[in-house]
């Protein structure tokens, strides 16, 4: 199930000298710049490293669809997040229908088990704590405090008003405090 990426993607022009090479170069650059951020976003969304990796790949493949048409993308980062958000939503829809046993059988291990050597135990712990938040809260926390996105950008990506995002951030922080017994 695909969602339309609603975002201000301004099509300025179809590049005159755009070709496969130029676009792949841009593609590589964007993956280098934003790959990890999208990966983090996905981990927080789906609480599983392998799945997050697959999702990340999927996000960039869909992103390629925009690049190959030569659309000049004003805010690549925002577009990538939006795609990631949509894909995660689709995943969630599917997941809700699976029972917990199914999930484990399908390999949806909790993060601590699936974390590779690149993730510290500490970090795994943080992620597991975050999973106790609601999805909406979780994603704004990560986008704001891990990736440093401006609340206004977050608003655009999530298609909400800036106000809603601020409120959500506040609320999420408080909830997390409770979880952490602070």
């Amino acid at each position: 199930m695909l969602h339309r990426e609603r975002l201000d993607v301004r099509v300025i022009r179809i590049g005159r000298f755009m070709n496969q090479n130029t676009q792949v170069t841009v593609f590589d650059e964007d993956f280098a710049k934003y790959g990890d951020a999208i990966f983090r976003f996905c981990i927080v969304k789906v609480s599983n490293v392998e799945l997050a990796e697959d999702l990340t790949q999927e996000v960039f493949m869909r992103y390629w669809g925009y690049l190959k048409d030569g659309k000049e993308i004003q805010n690549p980062r925002a577009l990538l997040y939006t795609i990631a958000n949509n894909l995660a939503k689709d995943w969630y829809k599917k997941k809700k229908s699976d029972s917990l046993d199914d999930q484990i059988a399908l390999g949806y291990d909790p993060v601590e088990k699936s974390a590779g050597p690149q993730m510290l135990a500490e970090q795994a712990e943080v992620i597991d704590a975050l999973t106790q938040l609601e999805e909406n809260d979780r994603e704004v926390m990560v986008m704001r405090y891990v990736d440093g996105l401006d609340p206004r950008d977050i608003a655009v990506i999530l298609n909400e008003s800036a106000n809603v995002i601020s409120v959500r951030l506040n609320r999420a922080t408080k909830r997390l405090q409770t979880i952490l017994h602070l």
Partner: peptide, 30 residues
């Protein structure tokens, strides 16, 4: 404290192997 706690996730990155693998797949796809 909370926000700092969350910020610990900043260092999470794709492993080199995974990054290379994904990059490869992306190239093929493109």
């Amino acid at each position: 404290k909370t926000t700092e706690y969350v910020a610990k996730l900043k260092d999470i990155k794709l492993s080199d192997a995974s990054r290379a693998r994904i990059q490869n797949n992306l190239h093929e796809y493109a």
